[in-house]
Structures are given as C-alpha cells and as structure tokens.
Design a binder for these strands. Sequence first.
DNA 1: TCCGTAGACG
DNA 2: CGTCTACGGA
Lengths: 362, 362
Amino acid sequence: MLEAKLQEAGLLKKLLDAIKELVTDANFDCNEEGINLQAMDNSHVALVVVKMESTGFKKYRCDRPMPLGVNLASLTKVLKCAKDDDTCTLKAGDGLDSLNLVYEAKNSDRIAEYDMKLMDIDAEQLGIPDTDYDARITLPAAEFTRIVKDLSLLGESVRIEVNKEGIRFVSDGEAANGSVLLKPTDGKVKIGDDDEEEEEEKEDEEDEDEDSAKAKKKAKKQKKVKKESNDDVEMNGDEENGNEEFTAKSDDEGEDEKEDDEEESEGSSKKRKKASSSKSKKPAKKAKTKKDDDEYSGGVDIAMNQHVTLTFSLKYLVNFSKSSSLSDSVQLMMSNDVPLLVSYSFESGYIRYYLAPKIGDD
Amino acid sequence: MLEAKLQEAGLLKKLLDAIKELVTDANFDCNEEGINLQAMDNSHVALVVVKMESTGFKKYRCDRPMPLGVNLASLTKVLKCAKDDDTCTLKAGDGLDSLNLVYEAKNSDRIAEYDMKLMDIDAEQLGIPDTDYDARITLPAAEFTRIVKDLSLLGESVRIEVNKEGIRFVSDGEAANGSVLLKPTDGKVKIGDDDEEEEEEKEDEEDEDEDSAKAKKKAKKQKKVKKESNDDVEMNGDEENGNEEFTAKSDDEGEDEKEDDEEESEGSSKKRKKASSSKSKKPAKKAKTKKDDDEYSGGVDIAMNQHVTLTFSLKYLVNFSKSSSLSDSVQLMMSNDVPLLVSYSFESGYIRYYLAPKIGDD
DNA sequence: TCCGTAGACG
DNA sequence: CGTCTACGGA
C-alpha cells in the first residue's frame, strides 16, 4: 500500500517531461524511503535515475517495497490533467494493478481522480557505485542547455575537456567547428583531493591514485553480485577490467550507505574547499546536494583531480538538458573512460543521467 | 588578414536573419573601409547590398581586400551560438579557407570560438549608380512591414503610387482589394528639386528633367565598363535603353565620389527642405544616412520630383521588411521604370534591397 | 509565444 | 494510415 501526497503536481510533470522522450516504460520503485526510478533509455545507451525522497512529500506512506510499472506516455497524459499547483496524491494498493492519482486544487474546490493501469516491467535495479569523479563541475543549468544546443547545431558529438583552465566543450562539424570554454566563476579550478596532480591522464587502467583505486575497489565489491544482464552492456565498453559502472545489485541497500560514510570522513581530511565540496563532492549521495538551488549562486564551479577528456553524443546531452526546469544548476561528473553523470537536484530528490563516452573517433 | 571586433553579435545575427532567406551564399568583401556584401537573391530578381563600415566596429583591421565566401546557412548556425550582447570577433587569415568567430560574454567568463569553412564564390561586384530618385519616402519600418504583410494576404503584387497626396500601396486580389495611403506626417509632400512639376509623368524615356538626365548620364558613364554579366540581366528589363541600374564596376571608386560632390552643391541650391534632403537625398552615398535612427522621429516623410507608380512583388517586399529589426525607419526610393531601393540604415552601415518593378499587368 | 511542418510511433 | 510529439520559423 502506497500513499504519497505531493504538494505540487508540477514536480512530477516536470520529471516526466524530462524523461518521457528517453524512456517509454519504467518502474517507480516505492519503498519507505521514497520513490526511485531507474531505467535505461530506449536504445540502451543512457541510464536515467530519479529519486524522490519521502521527505519531499506532504504525506508519505509505503508499507512495503512495491515496484509500479508505468507507461510514461500514459502517466504523462494523466499528469496533463493536473494543474502545476494542484496537490497530487498517488495511491496504489498491494494487489492492484493500477495507480490512483488524485489532484486537488489549492482552494480544494476541485478534486480530480484518475486511475492509471500499471504494467509488469522486469527491469532489474542496477547498482550504481558511488564513484569519486576526477572532475566535478557545477554550472547554471541554462548555460549547459545553451552550450549543448549550440554545439548540436554543428556536430553530432562533443568533446568535454576539464583542465586547469576550466571546462571546454568542443564539437567538430561539417560546416564549422565550435569550442566553448567556461572558466570557474571565482577564477580558480579546485585541483585534486589526493597527492597526485599529473599533467596528462591515463588512457587506461594504470591510474592507481587514491580515489580511483577506491572506486574500483567498490566496483569490485559490487561485482560479486553482478548478474549477466544486458542492460548495462552498452554502458560498459570494458566489461571485464574491473571498471564496471553499473551492476545489478543485491537487495541489501546498506552497502552503499556504509561506503558513503567511509568516504565522508576521508573527504573531510582532504584539501577540498568547503564551498565546493558541499556542492559537488558527493554527487551520488542523497541529501548532499539537496537544496542546491537555494544556495546556488549562478556561477561555475570546477573541482578536479586530474585532467579529463571525454566525448559524448550531443543528442543525449540535449535531451538531458530538458531537466533544466527542475533546477537552476546542473552537476557534471566525469572521470576518464567512465560514463558521464549529469545531475539535477531539486528539493528532496534528483534526476540523474549516465552516459557512456564515445570511444575512439566515432 | 582580417580582424574585426563587433560590440554586439546581435547586429550580425539580425543582418543574417534579414538576408538568409533571400541568398544562400555570398562574399563578405572586406577591405580597410569595412565589410560589404552584395548578392543577387537566389532567383536573381532582387539585389541585396550590405555595408558595415569599419567605424562601426570596436576594433577593425584589414590589411588588404579579401572576399570571404560564406554559406549563409552555416554562418547563421554559427551565429545562433552567440548571445545578442556577446562581443563577436571575426578573424580570417590571408591564406586560410576558414573564418574564425570568437564570442565573449559581457562578463567574459564564457568564451566561445568557432571556425567556419569558407568557400570560393565567383560573384562579381556590381556597380550601383548613385541614382537620384524621383520619389524618396521615409517611413517607420514597422509601418512598412505591416503594410506589405497585410497586402500580401490579398494579392501577389502591390502597386505603389507616390503623388502629392502621399504614398499609396494598392493590391488587387481574388477575394479583396486593398489600398493603404500614408500621408506625410507634416502634411506636405516635398515636391521637386527641379523646375518641372508636371501632373502625369513619363511612361518611357521622355523625361529629361535635370536630375534624371544627370542620372542617365551617370549610368552611361558607368556603362563603359559594363561587362556581359548574367547577374544583372533580370534586373534590367531594358538592357539597351541607357537605363541600366547595375553594372559590373571598375576598381575605380573615385568616380562615384566625384558625382556625389557635384550633386550636393546642386541640391543645396534647390528648394528641398534641409531635413528631408539630409535624410533621403543621397541614399546610395555612405555616411549620409548614418545614424538615421538617432534622429528619426517616427513620422512619414515624402519628397518627390514627379509622380511615380510602380508595381512590385509583395513576396520580396515582405522579405525585405525582415530588416526592421535593424532600424526604426526605412527609406523607399523610386523612379519610374527603375528598380525600387529599400534601405535600412543602422549605426555605421546599412542594408539595401533593389527590386525591379513588374512590367505590364503580371 | 504560438503556429505549422516534419518525423516517429501505434 | 492516422495520431501524437518534437522542432523550427514567424
């Protein structure tokens, strides 16, 4: 039995607008902590993760975990029937195959109720390791949107380079080449939270600096429960080198939590600046980036351990940038040869996208 | 080597918006005086002329004349990547086949750089004689846009009549006929700067009043260097009657200058009002119409030597009127049986269109 | 910001 | 083949 009352239906509408083009069906995994959604995009190239914490709801109750298989087009239609500032109550019974949505106008003089058919979706939950990324950038969401849209006019893909100068987006096209450089607002790129600061980075697995070594340890730890799933094949160019980003995870959720705590104490002993660390240090940890918007200044913040250069499909990035309506800022997390993480945080939740880099010159 | 820094990329964007539908490829002819563009529209019916004087740039340097062959669709794309208030620096090396554009945001924390491929365009520069038009009208650009758009809903072409009453736009269509009359704001049409003021005008070449005779003299003078170009054939219905409007010109620019001086002294002895003459007397002379906007009052000003009635394709006029974003006012210059000149002036430059009148009842 | 056109999906 | 959605232009 789920009953979750959202103060503003608009949030859900925005979330659906953000992902409906990428994903057609997905499970809304509800448990006592909130609602999570995880889905590969239709072409299995990108991974979308949405988290809505129970604390973000006006009322929230979920007796036992239940996955609600939703056709996103249907849900979008149903949500179109809500005004942005209506409250929205989601209800699902344990044995039932439908989701009940009730919209109440602010002044309560209007109550609309919808029942949407649910479906069975056998999508396994992937385990997403809490990677420490080598480059962590916070920038205005509108700026990111602008850049990827601009560059998508010129070419198919963008090379993103993070170095001491800042972050640079480069696209080569038929008619023209483009390059956009963003410098950090305060003028300096925060460099390194480890002892290493090499000029040119690994192209492979030789990097054994502290953070990435730890990340791999984690990945390996999770690998022990990894299943032969097809869902994450595209995300992992090198399936067998211990660098898997996504692995089907066990039901034990405690593991991630423990890892986080461990990292936190470590992180605080490093030379990261407080301002930047609170914003971008722990991207994969819930409640860390919460309320970013409230404190977001509108600037560009860049922290990096080493230079990172990765190439991505602009089509996807443009798609991701639709989430701008959910947050003023966006975080980009990158390490070489690892999927990019694009994260938009909102009050008590986030929406994240993972996109594998293009390999070679395609 | 060209290096030209524009304070506002918006100017270039507006220029391209104005012409990109008319012309696909064009040379940006750069020399020490500035940048000029001249191109026939795709169907070789209209001529577009753009001038950006070097003084309009924040920085300008062009060592030697260089024609930059540009695909306007490509340039439009690249310019879409600039915000209107970004500065825009154009650079082109002498031997290189690409144009470099750098956009800097106001606060300079964002630098975007684009390289656009150039192409070879063998378009000859046409010589455009400095005609003295029989009717010179200044009106609000928005008014002109409105009129041609309105009338284009009714018919294909518009008959423009200038007489003592004012300027009248008439269109006959299947469903309805339309007629819009604009009277001069100050109530009077400035009439004639010669001794003649006949009621009904020439349909041919019998008019030998002072100004038009001189204009023809000029046309003939330039004809001596006219080449057998195809570019201007469509502009000249009557190639052999000494009334050619556009001729491939020699490299000698001095000729035009001398003519202008000559006219000026003459004009000052005529009964033209100072205000109107400074605005519309010398449309084809650079720096004469500069800063029109600064002094433009928003009214309609009409000066004429004789009645003029000409018919034009509305499709083109509607297209021309896209330049409204560049200026509050537009000048229409007309003489019978001669192409209409539509001119929008902006700070240190202008964009002009020439359109041959329709002959007969087509 | 709205409308029209083009592309994708059912 | 028709409908719906998304993107581009006015």
